[in-house]
């Protein structure tokens, strides 16, 4: 991908994490890494978002919250699971209150490894997600055209 055609907005939700990954997601937005220069903006409103960035595993309390937020994001959308807890439950995988990774409740497009995930890998994951977003958009257009 040589350049970005759109300014993707992302929504961040902290599921059951230790918040190490959350502060690294925020660090991506601040001066050293500064993803805002690419037009990437962290929004608080799911209906404005294209990319759903989620950290931490799923537990009983947030299962429905995650599903709700996902349902509210308009298509096309991509989900990025940041950190090992979001991919599999991580060190907490055996805890009674953890249901596992994010893919237990919603489809995940990109898995970002790390505990805590580094800002570089988070940015890399989001850039990968943007490619998938473009593919989904193209596919949506084709379907609209053929319908």
């Amino acid at each position: 991908m040589a350049y970005l055609k759109k300014s993707p907005w992302l929504l961040h939700y902290d599921a059951s994490s230790c918040n190490g990954c959350d502060i690294e997601v925020l660090a991506c937005l601040t001066p050293l890494y500064d993803v805002e220069r690419f037009g990437i903006i962290n929004t608080g409103n799911p209906k404005h978002a294209d990319v759903f960035v989620i950290t931490g595993g799923i537990n009983e309390m947030n299962r429905q919250v995650v599903k709700n937020i996902y349902a509210q994001i308009p298509d096309p959308k991509v989900v990025v699971a940041v950190g090992v807890c979001a991919t599999s439950g991580g060190v907490f995988r055996e805890c009674y209150n953890i249901a596992g990774g994010v893919d237990q409740v919603i489809p995940v497009d990109v898995y970002v490894p790390g505990c805590a995930a580094r800002p570089e890998s988070i940015i890399d994951g989001i850039v990968t997600a943007l490619g998938i977003l473009e593919e989904k958009r193209t596919k949506m257009k084709e379907q609209e055209g053929s319908a």
Binding site: M61, Y96, V105
Partner: peptide
């Protein structure tokens, strides 16, 4: 609100009891 009632009085771990459906 926890996945099961009074979790610390009878400690179990994930995978040892049947999970709720996805």
């Amino acid at each position: 609100k926890t996945a099961k009632k009074y979790p610390f009085s009878n400690v179990t771990f994930r995978g040892e009891v049947t999970c709720r459906k996805k």
